[in-house]
Design a binder for these strands. Structure first.
Lengths: 213, 213
DNA sequence: GTCTATACATGGATAGAC
DNA sequence: GTCTATCCATGTATAGAC
């Protein structure tokens, strides 16, 4: 049956991508783990690139409506407090992905991080194309929180913030290993997020602008 | 002659890696652009992974001594000011790479960003293995600037900062394109750095710590 | 020592049989 | 709709020419 095959491919790909990254996972690995023919990936998804999007879509379709909800219920605040509120409002739906699947949050953020850095903008286009309204909602909330910061400066800070997040998620396994070896800390994904939120909030809310070098 | 061949390979690889990324550049592209035999890369560098390190080494060997110099001459300051000073002290040697080669800074940071995200920790090990003392010097200067922040918290912030930097550099071409389309700004690499420094400095210097979610 | 030619295993993709 | 057989490109390794 087609649906079983498709689902089995996504399941297998999800596990393998999260574990070893997108580029290091071969189609042959995916299809043998899923017990389907090598060509089925191409048949059902068109290409390997589309496959990673399908894997992520399953999570995005749970995540984004929750983010929309959060944005609606949010009472806007100004300044650092508002940014903090917004980021924590984002963190909660993210952590709720653990309900979708055991370890769902970690799998999702690793997929996101690795996919974002390895797929050369394809993923960015996919997200903007399919969840653009949610992103726009986040942005306008940010503008309300920081009315004094010009749009182009906000653009920069947002990308730096995304960079911190994506990079941390892509290398979260390495971060966990280092933290364990050097600081005897057992790190879970919510710990990474908990450290990340104040860092990013602080950077975004800064009152000074860029200066010439 | 060997030296010519080696240098020609590095030149060709440098241009191609910076332009289209590490993973998207094939050995055959490199060797035909360099007008050398396909097998020479393996002969001279052992593997493609080693090649990207050789490309970066040419820049690191110019950059890192300048960073060492900067660290020696730096008069330590505390708090946000000290962090700012440190980051700007890093930015200048980085921009001096333009003297090494036309557009050197941009090529280097793009190589660094793309290599870092695509090479799964190999690059991190390479940097720590070859320039570990310089990194350690930077870290201790950071500890002096922020004595109240515990080592593990500093560890997190440093990685978030690296994430902002690496991600921005890896996607600097996309950022430049977006900035031009949406904000009619012609962005050069020093503009990215100029915006990045206060963002990162602010995040690193934050006085609040992670809270539980 | 360098370099060339070439072989090999594996990657993703596809045309066509069923 | 599904799968087999096959295609072409890739990174790597090696044998042998200069």
């Amino acid at each position: 049956m087609s649906k079983q095959t498709k689902a089995r491919i996504i399941d297998a790909a999800e596990a393998l991508f999260a574990e070893q990254g997108y580029g290091q996972t071969s189609m042959r690995e995916i299809t043998s783990k899923a017990n389907v023919n090598l060509a089925s990936v191409n048949y059902h998804f068109g290409s390997k690139k589309n496959l990673i999007q399908a894997v992520l879509k399953r999570y995005f379709d749970v995540l984004m409506p929750q983010v929309d909800d959060m944005l609606e219920k949010l009472i806007p605040s100004q300044g650092r407090k508002g940014v903090d509120q917004l980021l924590q409002g984002l963190a909660l739906p993210l952590l709720h992905l653990n309900a979708v699947q055991p370890n769902g949050t970690e799998i999702f953020v690793q997929l996101l991080g690795k996919g974002y850095t390895e797929s050369q903008g394809h993923l960015r286009k996919f997200i903007l194309g399919n969840y653009g309204e949610t992103i726009e909602g986040l942005l306008s909330m940010l503008r309300i929180a920081l009315p004094a910061i010009p749009a182009d400066e906000l653009f920069w800070r947002l990308h730096f913030a995304i960079g911190s997040f994506v990079f941390s998620m892509a290398s979260s396994q390495a971060l966990k290993d280092i933290a364990k070896a050097d600081y005897q800390q057992d790190i879970e994904i919510q710990d990474v997020i908990a450290h990340l939120v104040p860092f990013v909030a602080q950077g975004i809310s800064a009152e000074g602008y860029a200066r010439e070098l």
